[in-house]
Amino acid sequence: MALYSEKVMDHFRHPRNVGKIDDADGVGEVGNVVCGDIMRMYIKVKDNIITDVKFNTFGCGSAIATSSMATELIMGKSIDEALELTNKAVVEALGGLPSHKIHCSVLAEEAVRAAIVDYFEKNHIEYDREKYAPKEDCEHCHAHDE
């Protein structure tokens, strides 16, 4: 068995929706370079629907594949639906990830959420700040910092 499934490798080799959106309605960046994975998500929103999404990722195969899959999963969806996206759903859509790679997929969920929060902020739309507050740091990275 290879490290990653064919599905993961397909998204890694041919990532969907790579790039930037210059006039994005929301941009979210999560992760940090010291830990080794960073994702930046751009969204265009029209009538509460995500009409376009692009990403930039610095990270491993799993980070790139999950970013790619997350963009596919939220494209054309309503903001509310996109906010419901979980890393579990992304991993399932990819047909699974090795257990020590799950942490990389968490970022995809966080990046989508960060882009939507940015959209809310820019457009003065009320949202549940407590629930969707941007995380200061990627907490999963610190468990191993002795």
Partner: peptide, 28 residues
């Protein structure tokens, strides 16, 4: 850039190397 991605893309063209990146190891 991140080393594991580089490693995997190199593997796709038949070049087999290793990486010192966190994500390429189990330890993070």
């Amino acid at each position: 850039i991140e080393g594991e991605s580089l490693l995997l893309y190199l593997d796709d063209v038949g070049i087999e190397v290793s990486s010192g990146s966190a994500c390429a190891s189990a330890s993070l």
